[in-house]
Amino acid sequence: MSPLARKRLGKIALNATGLLVFVFAIFPVYWMVSTAFKTNDQIFTTEFIPFPTSFTFEHVHRVLTEGVAGNSIWVYMGNSAIVALGTVLVGAVFSLLAATAVARFNFKGRSTFLIVLLVAQMIPAEALLIPLYLRVIDLGLVDQLAGLILVNVGLTLPFGIWMLRTFVAAVPKSLEEAAWIDGASRLTTFWRVLFPLVAPGLVATSIFSFITAWNELIFALVLMSESSGYTMPVALQFFFGQKGTDWGAIMASSTMMTIPVVVFFLIVQRRMVTGLMAGAVKG
């Protein structure tokens, strides 16, 4: 075989493998979406029906109106959004402050703080379930979204600070120093110089927190006992068992839950990787 032919063959093989990976990754997602739009006849069959030829909005309509556990899916989407956004807002402010302290100042106890951050990240959230549950009870926040926000802020903050400090540190110090020399106050410097440059990092960190809070199941499961306060991950459990497994409705709801995350991922794809890696690798 000529080297050229071999090279071409290799290229074809590479592309074929790439395509295979693509299909492996995307097919389950596609299957979720397509099931959401199939009629029950086409869902409960032992045949393989690649496309919903009997395209229907019945499941989407049903989960939006009738919903599950007594509420429309909108209620749960709303709860999830409130929890995730609340977590992001509180978390962003706290982590920006702490990240600035760690990345811009050298102070006594800085290394200790960094170690604490690291160890805090290693603690499995599941281990904290019991004491945090008791804490939330003590605060009287059972069945309140605020309780869930509080917990999620706690769970996402160490990583948020850890991730954000690299973004802060990446902003050249000389810029701020120039501003000081011009007589700007620290606050002005922070707001006018540092903040705009850190903003993209803050967005990435926030989206990370958003997704974590959006996806969180176990705390929502134990903290929310009223169905009107369920978040999406909890509400989805109620499709199983209660009235038999209504796969059409489950897939319609799962699709709705997945859409915001996919959108965010596509927006910050590159920064997520940088952030996650930078958050963890030092030097």
């Binding site: 007594g70 549950y133 009870i137 059972v142 069945d143 134990v222 006992s225 009223e226 068992g241 209660q242």
Partner: peptide
């Protein structure tokens, strides 16, 4: 209305949270 399979969880949460 509390479906039978969830009764114990619901009672537990209520007894723990005073709700």
């Amino acid at each position: 209305w509390i479906p039978w399979p969830q009764v114990n969880d619901k009672f537990t949460a209520a007894a723990a949270g005073g709700t």
